[in-house]
Design a protein around this nucleic acid. Structure first.
Lengths: 76, 76
DNA sequence: ATGTGACTTGTAGTCCGTA
DNA sequence: ATACGGACTACAAGTCACA
């Protein structure tokens, strides 16, 4: 079984929550953020250790700052 | 001339501010975060596009959450 | 104590599929 | 629309010598 990193899972959950709130699909978000659709799916599942600039792109599309996506991260 | 990304520069500035506040050197921080001293230096200068988990390590040493380091990022 | 260039290795990120 | 895999390519991770 794949032991995912807790911080990445937490981030992924925040992203999914925010994306649904905004009301767009993974596909649409990925297109706007100019990242791969299947790669973005992996991020929401907490399977990908994305870079800061990729996170910036995603936050831009979600129209929020990274700060609002990372409350309590890291969580000891 | 190297055109650095504004968001990375902003993050680097926040990190440096916080580190000085805490009162430790780049060297000490890097040691605790288990990353290379010169690599960390590049992060503060906004020259490195670090991954989320690297940022998590740094935030842990600074004893703060990523949220507090990323206010107004991205900044349109 | 920090900045920088040059480098190798590992993985972020893409692109093609299948279900 | 999303999950997941394989095979790739681009670039972050990590190290070092020297200013």
């Amino acid at each position: 079984m794949n032991t995912k990193n807790h911080n990445l899972v937490q981030l992924g959950e925040q992203l999914r929550r925010k994306r649904i709130q905004v009301g767009i699909s993974q596909e649409q978000l990925a297109l706007k953020a100019e990242i791969d659709r299947s790669y973005y799916g992996g991020i929401e599942r907490g399977e990908r250790n994305l870079t800061f600039l990729t996170l910036v792109k995603i936050a831009s599309v979600l129209n929020c700052d990274i700060s609002s996506l990372t409350k309590n991260i890291p969580h000891e």
